[in-house]
């Protein structure tokens, strides 16, 4: 266990003790924090097992060649299209997109494509966009989509290009 792990562990235990004590002594702020933690954990536990099983199946079944061909260095414009379409069907949010993007990259998807995927899964998930339009109006959603998607793709290209030039390597084994 490294030093920073030890700090994290003690922080974690301090947090648990604080929340537990808050419930025992009826300290409202601490109780609210505990309830926040619980409700967000439940929200994520609904998604994460499915997401990780699908990632596992992806890693086992999908051939590296296939990913490289469609999302790799020579994929061209259609690679970005795939990334956006895939993002549209992603559920959850950034925290689900990160492990998926990571697996895609380890299978040969290029950096600019996975950043496009991450950005697009933040802004153009289909169920979320429909939900958004029902509260904000369809005009708002369309403007937001058409303004943000090109920016996401362009900045992803810039970021991908910059990192490739700097010989960026993704952290292995996550």
């Amino acid at each position: 266990m490294t030093f920073s792990d030890k700090i994290k562990m003690s922080g974690f235990f301090a947090y648990i003790c604080f929340v537990a004590a808050s419930f025992i002594f009826n300290f409202n702020p601490g109780k609210l924090i505990g309830i926040n933690f619980y409700s967000f954990s439940m929200e994520m536990l609904k998604l994460l097992p499915c997401a990780f099983i699908l990632i596992g199946l992806f890693e086992v079944w999908v051939k590296r060649k296939t990913v490289e061909k469609h999302l790799g260095a020579k994929s061209g414009f259609r690679g970005y299209l795939w990334a956006v379409l895939l993002a549209g069907t992603t559920v959850g949010g950034l925290y689900v997109a990160f492990p998926i993007a990571y697996s895609l990259h380890t299978k040969g998807a290029k950096l600019s494509i996975i950043f496009t995927y991450i950005g697009a899964s933040a802004i153009c998930r289909v169920p979320m966009t429909i939900f958004e339009a029902s509260f904000m109006g369809i005009k708002f959603s369309i403007i937001r989509l058409f303004a943000s998607l090109p920016l996401v793709i362009v900045t992803s290209m810039l970021l991908g290009h910059y990192l490739t030039k700097r010989k960026y390597k993704i952290l292995p084994g996550k």
Binding site: K8, F12, N36, F40, S41, P49, I55, G56, Y95
Partner: peptide, 29 residues
């Protein structure tokens, strides 16, 4: 094998998720 990969990846990232949840619970308060 796929399920094992899923489980391993999930356990690997779990501490980061817990850190995030702790931050979220405090910030939302």
């Amino acid at each position: 094998k796929a399920v094992k990969i899923a489980l391993k990846k999930f356990i690997n990232i779990l501490p980061a998720f817990v850190s995030m949840l702790i931050l979220v619970s405090i910030i939302l308060f």
